[in-house]
Every structure is written in C-alpha cells, then in structure tokens.
C-alpha cells in the first residue's frame, strides 16, 4: 500500500485501497477544523499585549501560534474555551459572542 500522507486526506475508493492494518496519519490541522465549535471568540488587543506567551502556553488546543514576537489565533481551530482570556496577565483578550452567518 501507499502510506497515508500526513498532509493529504487519503482518497480510498474501496476496501482494496485502505491499508491492511488500520493506520492513519492525516493531520487534524487539515482534517478537523474545530473552529466551528466556538461560541465565543477570543479577540486580542495588541496594544495591551506584553507578548509574554502565556496564552500560547495555556491553550489546550495548540490553537495559538507564535509569529515573530506575538501570538496569532488559529480561528480555524480555536474552540473558544476562554482559557487564554482568563490567563492573560494583562487582560488583553476579550471573549466576544461569535456572530454566525
């Protein structure tokens, strides 16, 4: 079999295509965007941010990435638990009701 590829959703047509052993490695980054679970959206006020990295450290979903020197939210995956907002030492994050279209 061809190994399932990390960044590609395997395109299996029939039982013949799937690996013999039930194995997979398609990343949830692509395969399972959990942002749709969110009711409240964390919004950062960069003016207040002291770039301490606490929000990045405390996110249970690894949904905050660190770019250069500041946090960037992956709204595609953030579930809106509010931990980052609660733990931010300078109160730079607000949880706002998600407006769904």
């Amino acid at each position: 079999m061809d190994r399932p590829r990390k960044d590609e959703r395997p395109d299996y047509k029939t039982w013949k295509d799937i690996p013999l052993t039930p194995v997979c490695n398609f990343t949830t980054i692509k395969g399972n965007p959990t942002g749709g679970w969110r009711t409240f959206r964390p919004i950062v006020d960069m003016d207040k941010c002291i770039k301490c990295g606490i929000c990045w450290q405390d996110c249970p979903d690894a949904a905050i990435v660190w770019e250069e020197d500041h946090p960037v939210w992956l709204y595609s995956h953030c579930k809106g638990c509010g931990i980052c907002a609660r733990e931010c030492p300078s109160d730079a994050i607000e949880m706002e009701l998600e407006v769904k279209i």
């Binding site: 949830t28 959990t34 606490i54 990045w56 450290q57």
Partner: peptide, 23 residues
C-alpha cells in the same frame, strides 16, 4: 520562530483539531 523567548519548547507534537472538549 520566536522573536522573544517562549515559556516552553516550541515544537508541537499534538496538532490542533483534536476532539477534546473545550478547556
């Protein structure tokens, strides 16, 4: 890449998109 030193090692071996509950 971290411009400023992050509190923990940067590498993520657990990707976002897992199905754990909020928080």
């Amino acid at each position: 890449m971290a411009g400023k030193k992050l509190p923990l090692p940067e590498e993520e071996l657990m990707d976002p998109g897992h199905v754990g509950c909020l928080g």
